[in-house]
């Protein structure tokens, strides 16, 4: 398996898909990268030769913020919100949805698995 940008090992997939295994590269970005470096979107990642891999890596790192750097940027943004103790920061601290979604039901992605409270009425019962 070819290695691209540090730890990333894209699989036996079409290049436009293989590139999305890089953190920070999605479908649209991947397609754009293929076109920009003039590689066939449909070629398999294993068909890349050394030069092409090197070229891809330099191009991606020059043009986009990916992987560790991007992760750090995201974490820093959240940390900033936490530290200034604004509303969004408080929501991050509590692990609740940040953008005004309801929390009476749902919001399981942020809140994690349900913690059942004995004696609590069901949602139907609350209406």
């Amino acid at each position: 398996m070819p290695r691209l940008i540090g730890v990333d090992i894209p699989a036996n997939k079409r290049l436009e898909i293989a590139l999305t295994y890089v953190y920070g590269v999605g479908r649209v970005t991947a397609q754009k990268i293929c076109d920009d470096v003039k590689l066939d979107r449909g070629m398999r990642a294993r068909e890349l030769n050394e030069d092409q891999i090197a070229m891809l890596a330099t191009y991606i790192q020059k043009t986009y913020m990916v992987e560790g750097q991007l992760r750090r940027q995201v974490a820093a943004n959240i940390n900033r919100l936490r530290e200034i103790s604004c509303y969004r920061g408080l929501r991050h601290r509590r692990g609740l949805p940040v953008r005004g979604q309801r929390t009476r039901t749902n919001a399981r992605t942020r809140k994690g698995p349900r913690k059942t409270v004995a004696g609590k009425k069901s949602v139907k019962g609350m209406k």
Partner: peptide, 8 residues
Amino acid sequence: HKLGEFAP
């Protein structure tokens, strides 16, 4: 940010 964001 807005002032209100800091007064819950």
